[in-house]
Design a protein around this nucleic acid. Sequence first.
RNA 1: GGUGCCAUACCCAAGUGGUAAGGGAAAGGUCUGCAAAACCUUGAUGCAUCGGUUCGAAUCCGAUUGGCACCUCCA
Length: 471
Amino acid sequence: MPVFLYNTMSRSLETFQPMQGNEVGLYSCGPTVYNYAHIGNLRTFLFEDLLKRTLQVSGFTVNHVMNITDVGHLTGDGDEGEDKIEKMANQTHKTVWEIAQFYTDAFFNDYDALNLIRPKVVCKATDHIQQMIDLIKRLEDGGHTYVSGGNVYFSIDSIPDYGKLARLDLSSLQTAVREDVQADDNKKNSKDFVLWFTKSKHGEQAMMWDSPWGRGFPGWHIECSAMSMYYLGESFDIHCGGIDAIPVHHTNEIAQSEAATGKEWVKYWMHGEFLLDETGKMSKSKGEFLTLSLLKSKGFDPMDYRYFCLGGHYRSQLKFSFEALETAKTARSNVYDRIRRMLAAGAKNTSLDGEKALEYKNAFLEHIQHDLNSPRALADLWGVLKDDTLSIDEKYSLAMFFDQVFGLGLQTIEKPEEESFPEEALALLQKRVEAKKEKNWALADSLRSELDAMGFMVKDSPAGSSLEKKM
RNA sequence: GGUGCCAUACCCAAGUGGUAAGGGAAAGGUCUGCAAAACCUUGAUGCAUCGGUUCGAAUCCGAUUGGCACCUCCA
Protein backbone atom coordinates (compact mmCIF):
# COMPACT_ATOMS: atom_id res chain seq x y z
CA MET A 1 0.00 0.00 0.00
CA PRO A 2 1.36 3.41 -0.88
CA VAL A 3 2.16 6.06 1.68
CA PHE A 4 0.60 9.47 1.14
CA LEU A 5 2.29 12.47 2.70
CA TYR A 6 1.42 16.14 2.68
CA ASN A 7 4.20 18.08 1.00
CA THR A 8 4.41 21.70 2.10
CA MET A 9 6.12 22.55 -1.17
CA SER A 10 3.13 21.54 -3.29
CA ARG A 11 0.55 22.09 -0.55
CA SER A 12 -0.96 18.77 -1.41
CA LEU A 13 -0.97 15.09 -0.57
CA GLU A 14 1.57 13.17 -2.62
CA THR A 15 2.36 9.49 -3.02
CA PHE A 16 5.68 8.97 -1.30
CA GLN A 17 8.39 7.60 -3.55
CA PRO A 18 12.00 7.66 -2.33
CA MET A 19 14.77 8.62 -4.71
CA GLN A 20 16.57 5.32 -4.28
CA GLY A 21 14.69 2.06 -3.82
CA ASN A 22 13.38 1.65 -0.30
CA GLU A 23 16.00 3.87 1.28
CA VAL A 24 14.68 7.09 2.75
CA GLY A 25 16.92 10.03 3.58
CA LEU A 26 15.25 11.99 6.38
CA TYR A 27 16.56 15.16 7.94
CA SER A 28 14.84 16.75 10.89
CA CYS A 29 15.67 20.05 12.52
CA GLY A 30 16.92 19.24 16.00
CA PRO A 31 16.96 21.22 19.20
CA THR A 32 18.77 24.42 20.01
CA VAL A 33 20.40 23.50 23.29
CA TYR A 34 20.30 26.62 25.39
CA ASN A 35 17.37 25.58 27.54
CA TYR A 36 15.07 22.65 28.25
CA ALA A 37 12.72 21.59 25.48
CA HIS A 38 9.11 22.42 26.23
CA ILE A 39 6.34 20.01 25.38
CA GLY A 40 5.52 21.99 22.25
CA ASN A 41 9.03 21.32 20.97
CA LEU A 42 8.57 17.70 21.89
CA ARG A 43 5.32 17.47 19.94
CA THR A 44 7.29 18.12 16.77
CA PHE A 45 9.77 15.37 17.62
CA LEU A 46 6.86 13.03 18.29
CA PHE A 47 5.47 13.84 14.86
CA GLU A 48 8.82 13.05 13.26
CA ASP A 49 8.97 9.78 15.15
CA LEU A 50 5.49 8.90 13.94
CA LEU A 51 6.62 9.62 10.40
CA LYS A 52 9.70 7.45 10.79
CA ARG A 53 7.78 4.56 12.32
CA THR A 54 5.11 4.75 9.64
CA LEU A 55 7.75 4.59 6.91
CA GLN A 56 9.43 1.66 8.64
CA VAL A 57 6.24 -0.32 9.04
CA SER A 58 5.57 0.39 5.36
CA GLY A 59 8.78 -1.37 4.39
CA PHE A 60 11.18 1.54 4.05
CA THR A 61 14.60 1.84 5.63
CA VAL A 62 14.94 5.27 7.14
CA ASN A 63 18.30 6.98 7.33
CA HIS A 64 17.49 9.69 9.85
CA VAL A 65 19.82 12.59 10.50
CA MET A 66 19.18 15.20 13.16
CA ASN A 67 21.27 18.20 14.08
CA ILE A 68 22.03 19.67 17.46
CA THR A 69 22.27 23.43 17.28
CA ASP A 70 24.95 24.01 19.85
CA VAL A 71 26.38 27.13 18.30
CA GLY A 72 24.50 29.98 19.82
CA HIS A 73 22.78 31.81 17.01
CA LEU A 74 21.88 35.36 17.69
CA THR A 75 18.55 36.53 18.93
CA GLY A 76 18.31 38.58 15.75
CA ASP A 77 19.41 37.97 12.18
CA GLY A 78 21.27 41.21 11.63
CA ASP A 79 24.61 41.67 13.26
CA GLU A 80 22.84 42.63 16.43
CA GLY A 81 21.31 40.40 19.03
CA GLU A 82 22.71 38.22 21.72
CA ASP A 83 23.86 34.67 21.49
CA LYS A 84 21.26 32.57 23.28
CA ILE A 85 23.65 29.96 24.60
CA GLU A 86 26.04 32.66 25.72
CA LYS A 87 23.24 34.49 27.48
CA MET A 88 22.35 31.36 29.41
CA ALA A 89 26.02 30.74 30.17
CA ASN A 90 26.39 34.21 31.64
CA GLN A 91 23.31 33.72 33.77
CA THR A 92 24.47 30.40 35.16
CA HIS A 93 28.24 31.02 35.29
CA LYS A 94 28.99 28.02 33.12
CA THR A 95 30.90 27.85 29.86
CA VAL A 96 28.92 27.79 26.63
CA TRP A 97 30.16 24.26 26.02
CA GLU A 98 28.90 23.11 29.39
CA ILE A 99 25.53 24.69 28.72
CA ALA A 100 25.23 23.00 25.34
CA GLN A 101 26.22 19.62 26.74
CA PHE A 102 23.88 19.91 29.71
CA TYR A 103 20.82 20.69 27.61
CA THR A 104 21.75 18.14 24.97
CA ASP A 105 21.74 15.49 27.67
CA ALA A 106 18.46 16.81 29.03
CA PHE A 107 16.98 16.70 25.56
CA PHE A 108 17.89 13.06 25.02
CA ASN A 109 16.50 12.14 28.43
CA ASP A 110 13.15 13.40 27.19
CA TYR A 111 13.72 11.80 23.82
CA ASP A 112 14.21 8.36 25.35
CA ALA A 113 11.45 8.79 27.91
CA LEU A 114 9.02 9.45 25.08
CA ASN A 115 10.20 6.28 23.33
CA LEU A 116 11.43 8.19 20.30
CA ILE A 117 13.67 6.14 18.03
CA ARG A 118 17.10 7.73 18.03
CA PRO A 119 18.33 9.07 14.68
CA LYS A 120 21.07 7.13 12.90
CA VAL A 121 23.17 10.28 12.91
CA VAL A 122 23.04 13.05 15.48
CA CYS A 123 25.32 15.85 14.37
CA LYS A 124 26.46 18.85 16.32
CA ALA A 125 26.83 22.12 14.47
CA THR A 126 30.13 22.85 16.19
CA ASP A 127 31.59 19.63 14.78
CA HIS A 128 30.82 20.70 11.20
CA ILE A 129 32.11 24.24 10.90
CA GLN A 130 34.41 23.15 8.08
CA GLN A 131 31.47 21.81 6.03
CA MET A 132 29.70 25.11 6.54
CA ILE A 133 32.72 27.10 5.43
CA ASP A 134 33.07 24.90 2.36
CA LEU A 135 29.44 25.50 1.46
CA ILE A 136 29.76 29.26 1.88
CA LYS A 137 32.88 29.19 -0.33
CA ARG A 138 30.90 27.36 -2.95
CA LEU A 139 28.18 30.02 -2.78
CA GLU A 140 30.82 32.71 -3.00
CA ASP A 141 32.31 31.09 -6.10
CA GLY A 142 28.84 31.02 -7.63
CA GLY A 143 28.37 34.72 -7.07
CA HIS A 144 25.60 34.40 -4.49
CA THR A 145 27.28 36.29 -1.67
CA TYR A 146 28.60 39.68 -0.73
CA VAL A 147 30.49 41.05 2.22
CA SER A 148 29.10 44.03 4.03
CA GLY A 149 29.86 45.48 7.42
CA GLY A 150 32.21 42.57 8.10
CA ASN A 151 29.64 39.82 7.53
CA VAL A 152 29.05 37.52 4.59
CA TYR A 153 25.51 37.75 3.24
CA PHE A 154 23.50 35.58 0.92
CA SER A 155 21.92 37.60 -1.87
CA ILE A 156 18.39 36.39 -2.53
CA ASP A 157 18.33 38.32 -5.79
CA SER A 158 21.00 35.94 -7.12
CA ILE A 159 18.41 33.16 -7.45
CA PRO A 160 15.13 33.17 -9.35
CA ASP A 161 12.79 31.43 -6.93
CA TYR A 162 13.48 32.70 -3.43
CA GLY A 163 10.59 32.02 -1.07
CA LYS A 164 8.96 29.25 -3.10
CA LEU A 165 8.33 27.02 -0.07
CA ALA A 166 6.50 29.71 1.88
CA ARG A 167 5.01 31.21 -1.29
CA LEU A 168 6.27 34.55 -0.15
CA ASP A 169 5.10 37.64 -1.93
CA LEU A 170 8.34 39.55 -1.55
CA SER A 171 6.91 42.88 -2.54
CA SER A 172 4.31 42.93 0.23
CA LEU A 173 6.43 41.58 3.06
CA GLN A 174 7.23 44.07 5.74
CA THR A 175 10.64 44.19 7.27
CA ALA A 176 11.24 44.38 10.98
CA VAL A 177 7.55 44.76 11.87
CA ARG A 178 8.20 43.65 15.38
CA GLU A 179 9.28 46.39 17.70
CA ASP A 180 12.19 44.45 19.09
CA VAL A 181 13.74 43.88 15.69
CA GLN A 182 15.87 46.41 13.93
CA ALA A 183 16.54 46.51 10.23
CA ASP A 184 20.08 45.69 9.17
CA ASP A 185 21.35 48.49 6.94
CA ASN A 186 24.18 46.37 5.63
CA LYS A 187 21.79 44.27 3.58
CA LYS A 188 21.25 45.00 -0.08
CA ASN A 189 17.86 43.34 0.10
CA SER A 190 16.10 43.25 3.45
CA LYS A 191 15.50 39.50 2.99
CA ASP A 192 19.19 38.74 2.54
CA PHE A 193 20.64 36.77 5.43
CA VAL A 194 24.02 36.23 7.03
CA LEU A 195 26.11 33.20 6.15
CA TRP A 196 29.11 34.09 8.28
CA PHE A 197 29.51 36.64 11.02
CA THR A 198 32.75 38.32 11.94
CA LYS A 199 31.17 41.29 13.62
CA SER A 200 28.54 41.39 16.27
CA LYS A 201 27.32 44.32 18.26
CA HIS A 202 27.90 42.28 21.37
CA GLY A 203 31.58 41.94 20.65
CA GLU A 204 33.51 38.69 21.00
CA GLN A 205 31.47 35.54 21.06
CA ALA A 206 32.63 32.64 23.13
CA MET A 207 32.45 30.32 20.14
CA MET A 208 34.56 31.57 17.22
CA TRP A 209 36.33 29.86 14.36
CA ASP A 210 38.81 30.95 11.70
CA SER A 211 37.45 31.32 8.21
CA PRO A 212 38.44 32.85 4.87
CA TRP A 213 36.39 35.89 5.90
CA GLY A 214 37.94 36.26 9.29
CA ARG A 215 37.43 34.84 12.74
CA GLY A 216 33.76 34.48 13.50
CA PHE A 217 30.82 32.13 13.56
CA PRO A 218 28.24 30.75 11.14
CA GLY A 219 24.86 32.28 10.35
CA TRP A 220 21.57 30.78 11.36
CA HIS A 221 20.66 28.58 8.50
CA ILE A 222 23.89 27.25 7.06
CA GLU A 223 24.30 24.35 9.47
CA CYS A 224 21.27 22.42 8.28
CA SER A 225 22.23 22.78 4.63
CA ALA A 226 25.84 21.81 5.23
CA MET A 227 25.20 18.85 7.50
CA SER A 228 22.23 17.40 5.66
CA MET A 229 24.15 17.40 2.39
CA TYR A 230 27.21 15.98 4.10
CA TYR A 231 25.29 13.01 5.49
CA LEU A 232 22.46 12.53 3.00
CA GLY A 233 23.81 13.87 -0.28
CA GLU A 234 23.01 16.98 -2.27
CA SER A 235 19.45 15.82 -2.80
CA PHE A 236 17.45 13.73 -0.36
CA ASP A 237 13.89 12.69 0.37
CA ILE A 238 12.33 14.33 3.40
CA HIS A 239 13.08 17.38 5.50
CA CYS A 240 10.86 18.14 8.43
CA GLY A 241 10.51 20.52 11.31
CA GLY A 242 8.06 22.83 12.98
CA ILE A 243 5.68 24.93 10.95
CA ASP A 244 7.41 28.11 12.08
CA ALA A 245 10.49 27.13 10.10
CA ILE A 246 8.73 27.54 6.76
CA PRO A 247 8.95 31.28 6.08
CA VAL A 248 12.50 31.94 7.19
CA HIS A 249 14.62 29.01 8.25
CA HIS A 250 13.64 26.51 5.60
CA THR A 251 13.18 29.20 2.98
CA ASN A 252 16.76 30.30 3.51
CA GLU A 253 18.07 26.75 3.69
CA ILE A 254 16.52 26.03 0.31
CA ALA A 255 17.90 29.23 -1.17
CA GLN A 256 21.49 28.57 -0.15
CA SER A 257 21.40 24.80 -0.79
CA GLU A 258 19.93 24.99 -4.26
CA ALA A 259 22.07 28.01 -5.17
CA ALA A 260 25.13 25.94 -4.26
CA THR A 261 24.24 22.72 -6.07
CA GLY A 262 21.99 23.99 -8.84
CA LYS A 263 19.52 21.16 -8.24
CA GLU A 264 16.47 20.37 -6.20
CA TRP A 265 17.57 19.83 -2.63
CA VAL A 266 14.65 18.15 -0.87
CA LYS A 267 11.75 16.26 -2.39
CA TYR A 268 9.22 16.30 0.46
CA TRP A 269 8.83 19.02 3.07
CA MET A 270 6.82 18.16 6.15
CA HIS A 271 5.91 20.43 9.02
CA GLY A 272 4.32 19.80 12.38
CA GLU A 273 1.77 22.27 13.73
CA PHE A 274 2.05 23.97 17.06
CA LEU A 275 0.87 22.87 20.43
CA LEU A 276 -1.03 25.71 22.04
CA ASP A 277 -1.51 26.40 25.69
CA GLU A 278 -4.12 28.60 27.30
CA THR A 279 -2.21 31.72 26.32
CA GLY A 280 -1.88 30.66 22.70
CA LYS A 281 1.43 29.62 21.28
CA MET A 282 3.78 28.03 23.73
CA SER A 283 6.85 29.95 24.58
CA LYS A 284 9.83 29.60 26.82
CA SER A 285 9.55 33.12 28.06
CA LYS A 286 5.89 33.69 28.83
CA GLY A 287 3.39 31.70 30.81
CA GLU A 288 4.17 28.41 32.50
CA PHE A 289 7.25 26.69 31.10
CA LEU A 290 5.79 23.28 30.32
CA THR A 291 8.44 20.58 30.27
CA LEU A 292 8.23 16.83 30.36
CA SER A 293 9.76 16.93 33.82
CA LEU A 294 6.94 19.16 35.00
CA LEU A 295 4.40 16.69 33.62
CA LYS A 296 6.19 13.86 35.39
CA SER A 297 6.23 15.78 38.64
CA LYS A 298 2.46 16.11 38.34
CA GLY A 299 2.10 12.36 38.10
CA PHE A 300 1.95 11.86 34.36
CA ASP A 301 3.87 9.23 32.49
CA PRO A 302 5.70 10.37 29.33
CA MET A 303 3.52 7.86 27.49
CA ASP A 304 0.48 9.85 28.58
CA TYR A 305 1.84 12.80 26.66
CA ARG A 306 2.65 10.58 23.71
CA TYR A 307 -0.91 9.26 23.68
CA PHE A 308 -2.22 12.80 23.97
CA CYS A 309 -0.26 13.89 20.91
CA LEU A 310 -1.33 10.84 18.90
CA GLY A 311 -4.92 11.92 19.54
CA GLY A 312 -4.52 14.95 17.29
CA HIS A 313 -3.34 15.16 13.70
CA TYR A 314 0.16 16.54 13.29
CA ARG A 315 -0.99 19.24 10.87
CA SER A 316 -3.60 20.61 13.25
CA GLN A 317 -2.97 22.89 16.15
CA LEU A 318 -3.50 20.99 19.37
CA LYS A 319 -4.75 22.62 22.52
CA PHE A 320 -2.91 21.52 25.60
CA SER A 321 -4.46 21.52 29.04
CA PHE A 322 -3.90 19.37 32.06
CA GLU A 323 -7.52 18.35 31.81
CA ALA A 324 -6.98 17.09 28.26
CA LEU A 325 -3.78 15.33 29.35
CA GLU A 326 -5.74 13.69 32.15
CA THR A 327 -8.17 12.15 29.68
CA ALA A 328 -5.25 10.87 27.62
CA LYS A 329 -3.79 9.35 30.74
CA THR A 330 -7.03 7.57 31.55
CA ALA A 331 -7.42 6.32 28.00
CA ARG A 332 -3.85 5.11 27.88
CA SER A 333 -4.10 3.27 31.15
CA ASN A 334 -7.32 1.67 29.95
CA VAL A 335 -5.41 0.38 26.93
CA TYR A 336 -2.68 -0.94 29.22
CA ASP A 337 -5.27 -2.64 31.45
CA ARG A 338 -6.81 -4.42 28.52
CA ILE A 339 -3.42 -5.62 27.31
CA ARG A 340 -2.59 -6.80 30.81
CA ARG A 341 -5.82 -8.74 31.05
CA MET A 342 -5.16 -10.34 27.70
CA LEU A 343 -1.75 -11.44 28.92
CA ALA A 344 -3.28 -12.78 32.09
CA ALA A 345 -5.59 -14.83 29.89
CA GLY A 346 -2.58 -16.23 28.04
CA ALA A 347 -2.49 -14.02 24.95
CA LYS A 348 0.53 -14.47 22.71
CA ASN A 349 1.79 -13.20 19.41
CA THR A 350 0.41 -15.00 16.44
CA SER A 351 0.49 -14.49 12.72
CA LEU A 352 -2.30 -12.36 11.43
CA ASP A 353 -4.10 -14.24 8.75
CA GLY A 354 -7.70 -14.39 9.92
CA GLU A 355 -9.99 -12.45 7.64
CA LYS A 356 -11.23 -10.09 10.33
CA ALA A 357 -7.74 -9.52 11.71
CA LEU A 358 -6.42 -8.66 8.28
CA GLU A 359 -9.27 -6.24 7.80
CA TYR A 360 -8.22 -4.40 10.94
CA LYS A 361 -4.58 -4.47 9.97
CA ASN A 362 -5.29 -3.05 6.55
CA ALA A 363 -7.61 -0.37 7.86
CA PHE A 364 -4.93 0.66 10.31
CA LEU A 365 -2.27 0.83 7.61
CA GLU A 366 -4.56 2.75 5.30
CA HIS A 367 -5.21 5.35 7.97
CA ILE A 368 -1.65 5.77 9.15
CA GLN A 369 -0.33 5.81 5.59
CA HIS A 370 -2.79 8.53 4.73
CA ASP A 371 -0.64 11.39 5.97
CA LEU A 372 -0.15 9.89 9.41
CA ASN A 373 -3.73 9.92 10.62
CA SER A 374 -2.89 8.79 14.12
CA PRO A 375 -6.26 9.76 15.68
CA ARG A 376 -8.02 7.50 13.23
CA ALA A 377 -5.45 4.76 13.81
CA LEU A 378 -6.03 5.04 17.54
CA ALA A 379 -9.71 4.47 16.88
CA ASP A 380 -8.69 1.31 15.03
CA LEU A 381 -6.86 0.14 18.13
CA TRP A 382 -9.99 0.64 20.20
CA GLY A 383 -12.00 -1.19 17.59
CA VAL A 384 -9.69 -4.18 17.97
CA LEU A 385 -9.71 -4.07 21.75
CA LYS A 386 -13.49 -4.09 21.85
CA ASP A 387 -14.20 -6.58 19.09
CA ASP A 388 -14.87 -9.97 20.65
CA THR A 389 -15.16 -11.74 17.33
CA LEU A 390 -11.36 -11.62 17.27
CA SER A 391 -9.42 -14.24 19.17
CA ILE A 392 -7.45 -13.01 22.12
CA ASP A 393 -4.21 -13.82 20.31
CA GLU A 394 -5.34 -11.82 17.29
CA LYS A 395 -6.24 -8.84 19.47
CA TYR A 396 -2.93 -8.95 21.23
CA SER A 397 -0.98 -9.37 18.02
CA LEU A 398 -2.79 -6.53 16.31
CA ALA A 399 -2.11 -4.27 19.28
CA MET A 400 1.57 -5.17 19.13
CA PHE A 401 1.64 -4.50 15.41
CA PHE A 402 -0.07 -1.14 15.79
CA ASP A 403 2.36 -0.21 18.52
CA GLN A 404 5.26 -0.36 16.09
CA VAL A 405 3.76 2.91 14.91
CA PHE A 406 2.27 4.26 18.13
CA GLY A 407 5.35 3.55 20.21
CA LEU A 408 3.29 3.47 23.39
CA GLY A 409 5.43 0.71 24.85
CA LEU A 410 2.67 -1.89 24.75
CA GLN A 411 5.18 -4.69 24.28
CA THR A 412 6.77 -3.84 27.61
CA ILE A 413 3.56 -4.61 29.46
CA GLU A 414 3.97 -7.69 31.56
CA LYS A 415 1.62 -10.27 32.90
CA PRO A 416 -0.07 -8.94 36.02
CA GLU A 417 0.98 -12.03 38.01
CA GLU A 418 4.54 -10.89 37.77
CA GLU A 419 3.67 -7.77 39.68
CA SER A 420 4.80 -8.11 43.25
CA PHE A 421 3.31 -6.55 46.33
CA PRO A 422 4.89 -6.04 49.73
CA GLU A 423 4.25 -8.77 52.30
CA GLU A 424 2.59 -6.23 54.54
CA ALA A 425 0.00 -5.33 51.91
CA LEU A 426 -0.70 -8.97 51.10
CA ALA A 427 -1.19 -9.68 54.79
CA LEU A 428 -3.73 -6.87 55.09
CA LEU A 429 -5.52 -8.14 52.04
CA GLN A 430 -5.69 -11.61 53.59
CA LYS A 431 -7.05 -10.15 56.83
CA ARG A 432 -9.73 -8.36 54.85
CA VAL A 433 -10.73 -11.53 53.06
CA GLU A 434 -11.24 -13.15 56.47
CA ALA A 435 -13.15 -10.16 57.81
CA LYS A 436 -15.40 -10.34 54.82
CA LYS A 437 -15.97 -14.01 55.43
CA GLU A 438 -17.07 -13.18 58.97
CA LYS A 439 -19.23 -10.35 57.57
CA ASN A 440 -17.26 -7.88 59.69
CA TRP A 441 -17.83 -5.08 57.20
CA ALA A 442 -16.45 -2.31 59.39
CA LEU A 443 -13.08 -4.04 59.70
CA ALA A 444 -13.07 -4.94 56.01
CA ASP A 445 -13.69 -1.33 55.04
CA SER A 446 -11.01 0.03 57.34
CA LEU A 447 -8.49 -2.46 55.95
CA ARG A 448 -9.46 -1.33 52.49
CA SER A 449 -8.79 2.31 53.29
CA GLU A 450 -5.53 1.34 54.99
CA LEU A 451 -4.41 -0.34 51.78
CA ASP A 452 -5.62 2.64 49.83
CA ALA A 453 -3.39 4.88 51.91
CA MET A 454 -0.48 2.59 51.12
CA GLY A 455 -1.14 3.12 47.44
CA PHE A 456 -2.98 -0.08 46.63
CA MET A 457 -6.44 -0.46 45.26
CA VAL A 458 -8.51 -3.46 46.29
CA LYS A 459 -10.50 -5.13 43.56
CA ASP A 460 -13.21 -7.58 44.49
CA SER A 461 -14.37 -9.88 41.80
CA PRO A 462 -16.35 -13.13 41.76
CA ALA A 463 -12.98 -14.89 41.60
CA GLY A 464 -11.73 -13.28 44.79
CA SER A 465 -9.95 -10.15 45.95
CA SER A 466 -6.77 -8.73 44.47
CA LEU A 467 -4.56 -5.69 44.69
CA GLU A 468 -3.55 -3.14 42.12
CA LYS A 469 -0.98 -0.41 42.38
CA LYS A 470 -2.53 2.99 42.12
CA MET A 471 -1.16 5.04 39.24
C1' G B 1 -0.74 46.55 6.58
C1' G B 2 0.15 41.60 4.09
C1' U B 3 -0.34 36.15 4.14
C1' G B 4 -2.04 31.45 5.74
C1' C B 5 -4.81 28.09 8.85
C1' C B 6 -9.00 26.86 11.76
C1' A B 7 -14.44 26.74 13.78
C1' U B 8 -17.59 19.25 14.54
C1' A B 9 -21.50 16.80 21.11
C1' C B 10 -20.01 18.78 28.12
C1' C B 11 -14.29 18.44 26.91
C1' C B 12 -10.35 16.65 23.44
C1' A B 13 -10.63 15.15 18.40
C1' A B 14 -11.09 12.26 13.21
C1' G B 15 -13.79 12.75 8.87
C1' U B 16 -12.24 16.95 2.12
C1' G B 17 -19.10 15.37 -2.14
C1' G B 18 -22.79 9.98 -0.55
C1' U B 19 -25.64 10.29 4.49
C1' A B 20 -21.28 12.21 11.48
C1' A B 21 -14.51 7.54 13.89
C1' G B 22 -12.47 7.30 18.60
C1' G B 23 -11.23 8.76 23.61
C1' G B 24 -12.56 11.23 28.22
C1' A B 25 -16.59 12.85 31.16
C1' A B 26 -21.87 11.81 32.20
C1' A B 27 -26.29 8.60 32.71
C1' G B 28 -28.50 3.62 33.06
C1' G B 29 -27.52 -1.57 33.80
C1' U B 30 -24.73 -6.33 35.37
C1' C B 31 -21.72 -7.70 39.49
C1' U B 32 -21.01 -6.41 44.88
C1' G B 33 -22.40 -6.49 52.04
C1' C B 34 -21.25 -1.47 50.41
C1' A B 35 -17.85 0.65 47.32
C1' A B 36 -14.10 0.58 43.71
C1' A B 37 -12.67 -1.90 39.44
C1' A B 38 -14.42 -4.51 35.34
C1' C B 39 -18.03 -5.37 31.61
C1' C B 40 -22.52 -3.89 28.73
C1' U B 41 -25.80 0.04 26.95
C1' U B 42 -26.94 5.25 25.71
C1' G B 43 -25.10 10.14 22.93
C1' A B 44 -24.70 15.41 17.59
C1' U B 45 -31.36 14.71 12.16
C1' G B 46 -26.55 17.78 12.77
C1' C B 47 -20.72 19.88 11.91
C1' A B 48 -19.94 28.94 13.81
C1' U B 49 -23.84 32.02 10.87
C1' C B 50 -26.14 33.28 6.19
C1' G B 51 -26.49 32.48 1.03
C1' G B 52 -25.07 29.56 -3.40
C1' U B 53 -23.55 25.07 -6.55
C1' U B 54 -25.32 19.77 -6.56
C1' C B 55 -29.78 14.35 -7.07
C1' G B 56 -26.91 14.78 -2.58
C1' A B 57 -22.46 19.36 1.29
C1' A B 58 -19.39 19.10 7.79
C1' U B 59 -16.90 18.41 3.14
C1' C B 60 -17.06 22.79 -2.92
C1' C B 61 -17.96 28.48 -3.78
C1' G B 62 -19.11 33.49 -1.66
C1' A B 63 -20.10 36.65 2.48
C1' U B 64 -20.26 37.38 7.82
C1' U B 65 -18.64 36.40 12.87
C1' G B 66 -15.03 34.37 16.13
C1' G B 67 -10.12 32.10 17.18
C1' C B 68 -4.96 31.08 15.95
C1' A B 69 -0.37 31.48 13.45
C1' C B 70 3.45 33.71 10.27
C1' C B 71 5.89 38.35 8.01
C1' U B 72 14.13 38.25 11.08
C1' C B 73 13.26 34.45 19.30
C1' C B 74 10.32 30.30 18.27
C1' A B 75 8.90 23.28 17.29
